[in-house]
């Protein structure tokens, strides 16, 4: 039954937590390696209520949202353009194939040199790290539009703009959204990595790095868990948004 299916996830999670707590209390692992969930929970509560953990959480969220937002806007615009105009794609292809596979870590020192240590650098690196996926999906989406749909627009004298807004955009939406979804996951990772590695301005990444360095392991774990919470929460929000935009597509696919 559906209820059993849904509960099974929660039950399994609880079982894992109990096992974890037991292993920690039995001393099978040291607190420095793997603190007990209770210790982590206590650290998290203390840091949020008496420390700056909540502020760092919001700071990371802000960077994520802005960096990802830039990736979305630039990625979809560029992707649509490249999908629509062959010549543009042919001209840009070498550049895209060069930059796309670059790991963010490799790009980070260059970004710091160019933009210094600050939010501008963070936004740029996050956008760079997550934008390519958006671009490629948007481009493929436009390329793959059924020519019959385009011809339909033409036989009804749809102008360039009308074709774009009434045909190209909705037709390319499902695949583009896939790209947006994957890019969001990347963006969360990149945000935390940037904060951790550059160590300049806090956020959850900076917090984790600091706590690890000071060997405050429960606090570091608390930070890590909050990263997971952020990723999960923003993923769910995105899912709701995507669902409302693509209701027709979900129904069509039988979901």
């Amino acid at each position: 039954m559906k209820i059993i299916q849904r509960l099974s996830g929660v039950v399994f999670l609880l079982a894992l937590l109990v096992a974890w707590e037991t292993i920690a209390r039995l001393g099978l692992v040291t607190p420095d390696q793997l603190p007990a969930p209770s210790a982590i929970a206590h650290a998290m509560a203390t840091e949020i209520l008496q420390g700056d953990l909540a502020i760092e959480f919001l700071r990371t969220t802000r960077r994520l949202v802005i960096g990802y937002g830039i990736a979305v806007i630039l990625g979809t615009l560029a992707g649509f353009a490249l999908g629509r105009w062959r010549l543009l794609y042919a001209a840009s292809e070498p550049i895209i194939e060069f930059f796309r596979p670059l790991p963010v870590i490799a790009v980070l020192p260059v970004a710091v040199l160019l933009l210094g240590l600050g939010d501008a650098m963070a936004y740029s690196v996050i956008a760079f790290g997550s934008g390519w996926v958006v671009l490629l999906h948007a481009m493929d989406a436009v390329r793959g539009i059924d020519p019959v749909l385009i011809d339909t627009g033409r036989t009804f004298q749809a102008s360039g703009f009308r074709q774009f807004s009434t045909i190209i955009l909705p037709a390319a939406a499902p695949q583009t959204f896939t790209g947006l979804r994957v890019a969001l996951g990347n963006a969360v990772i990149v945000t935390v990595v940037v904060e951790l590695v550059s160590g300049f301005g806090g956020g959850l990444g900076g917090y984790i790095g600091e706590e690890q360095g000071a060997l405050r392991t429960p606090e570091a774990y608390a930070g890590i868990i909050l990263v997971a919470v952020l990723g999960y929460g923003i993923g769910r929000l995105f899912g709701v948004f995507e669902g409302s935009m693509l209701r027709w597509h979900r129904q069509m696919m039988g979901r």
Partner: peptide, 22 residues
């Protein structure tokens, strides 16, 4: 010239010419 107003073309592939999002 181009697709005139007075002419409408009906496609053989009807299922592909209707907009699935509408």
């Amino acid at each position: 010239r181009g697709t005139p107003e007075e002419v409408v073309y009906v496609f053989q592939e009807y299922s592909r010419s209707l907009f699935p999002w509408r």
